[in-house]
């Protein structure tokens, strides 16, 4: 996972580079919560561009990070979510609480 801080805008970007299964999610969530609690960003962006695999562990990972940002009033956004992954989120109703943003090129490019 690559982590980028946009200090002025108070945005934290996590770019997942691993396969999002139970094994990898355990490590990601520790690192992500550490960064979120330290930086208290207004917005956390989760970038799925480099995710080649995700199972239901990804659902828990996203809902967990929603909780860690929502608890102090921060926002969570998902970007570059491929159809296969989107289908898994839809099955679990994740998109009712977290939104997918289609294009963030301008924001983080």
């Amino acid at each position: 996972m690559n982590v980028k801080h946009f200090i002025e805008d108070k945005i934290l970007l996590f770019e997942f580079t691993e396969e999002l299964d139970h094994h990898e999610s355990e490590k990601i969530r520790k690192r992500a919560d550490y960064e979120i609690q330290r930086f208290m960003p207004k917005k956390v962006i989760l970038d799925f561009k480099k995710v080649s695999f995700m199972d239901s562990a990804g659902i828990g990972l996203i809902i967990g990070r929603y909780k860690s940002t929502n608890c102090y009033g921060g926002n969570l956004e998902l970007v570059n979510v491929k159809p296969k992954i989107k289908r898994i989120f839809e099955m679990a109703g994740v998109l009712k609480i977290v939104s997918i943003v289609e294009n963030i090129q301008g924001q983080t490019g």
């Binding site: 969530r29 199972d55 239901s56 099955m91 679990a92």
Partner: peptide
């Protein structure tokens, strides 16, 4: 059943069988 899990504390979603 969708969303049923005995390990919610470990960030399990209960969606394994549904998938």
């Amino acid at each position: 059943a969708p969303l049923f899990t005995t390990k919610g504390n470990l960030e399990r979603s209960g969606m394994g069988f549904t998938i």
